[in-house]
Amino acid sequence: MMLVPGIMLVLIFSYVPMAGIVMAFQKYVPNKGLFGSPLIGLRNFRLLIDYPDIGRVFFNTVYIAVMKIFAGLLVPITIAILLNELRREWIKRTFQTLVYLPHFMSWVLLGGILVDVLSPTSGVFNQLLGFLGIKPIFFLGDNHWFPYVMVASDIWKEFGFGTIVYLAALTGINPSLYEAAAMDGASRLKQTFHITLPGMMPIIILMFTLNIGNVLNAGFEQIFNLYSPPVYESADIIDTFVYRMGVQQAQFGFATAVGLLKSIVSFIFISISYVLAYRVANYRIF
């Protein structure tokens, strides 16, 4: 009985909407609905292949997502190891709380904060650059800087959550291993590479495997709240492209075809990652 509400939510919001996939093969007309709109076969997919900007959109998505995946592993692992070295528990817990807080904030709120902080005229960051004699940079309006701002701000928001996950993994390492290594003359750095990291490897593989499926999810909410037409060249990703095509331009069939293709590719990536996790590290998620 406890499972029924969760199952109903999944059925209503995850499985029932999958009927809309048929729009990818239709010239969808809203007043005719799913069953009245004419079928056009793979025409939407051919239009997708011929669309002039689709290659750039896919590249932007993969480029930003891959940077987020690797930075999202490296930063929390590093912070977790450093926190684990602290001997004063109140300092460790205070820092954990502070870095975890942004995880609970929405990108609507954080987007407004970033716009103010990175403003080329009144932003704190650019004022600091001006004090150092560096010209102001329009971070959210420059195609060169925008992807890196997305990655850095995403890490700032989410690395606290990852840090807690890796700290939990560190508690499972036997302390006697460190004692034995210290008696053999191993430095803290050698202990980190030969005890800490191998002990964390199962959870690192798990997190990496789960993130591989998101290689085409570069963060719609974040980019939607921060991008603008001047940075479409480097900021436009699959999800924002689908939003503009489907919601703003009412090309429902074409937008559904793009979303379906993305889902198929993501499914292939996550399936491959599960197989690799088992074969390379002998680790099963299910």
Rank of each mutant, 00 (worst) to 15 (best):
S271I: 02
M201W: 14
K32T: 02
L216F: 12
V75A: 05
F138E: 15
I237D: 07
G253Y: 04
I203Q: 15
S14L: 08
M23D: 07
G123A: 04
L118Y: 13
D142V: 06
F269M: 03
Q222K: 14
I203E: 15
A65K: 14
F70S: 01
S187D: 08
I7Q: 07
N126D: 10
F131T: 03
A19Y: 15
R93F: 06
A19C: 07
L177P: 03
V99I: 15
I91S: 01
L210D: 08
L110K: 14
H144D: 08
M18E: 11
N84E: 12
Y274V: 09
V247R: 14
P147F: 13
A19H: 08
I113T: 11
I264G: 01
P202G: 05
S187Y: 15
D116C: 01
G172M: 09
R244W: 01
Y274D: 05
L83M: 12
Q127S: 10
K68E: 07
R284W: 14
S106W: 12
A19D: 04
M201F: 14
W156N: 01
K68V: 00
F193K: 02
I203R: 15
L11W: 15
A71V: 12
L83C: 06
L47G: 02
L206M: 14
A182E: 13
L140F: 07
I77M: 10
E179K: 02
M201Y: 08
P38Y: 04
R43F: 00
V66T: 12
L48Q: 02
G33I: 03
Y15S: 00
M207S: 05
V57D: 01
P120W: 02
P17W: 06
S153D: 10
L216K: 02
Q222S: 09
T171S: 10
I173H: 12
S187R: 05
P120N: 08
L11C: 05
R87N: 04
S119M: 07
I40R: 06
D154F: 13
S119E: 03
D142E: 10
I203N: 13
F13E: 11
L170V: 09
S153P: 14
N143I: 09
L39V: 03
P175Q: 09
Q26N: 04
V29S: 08
Y166V: 05
L114A: 07
F45K: 11
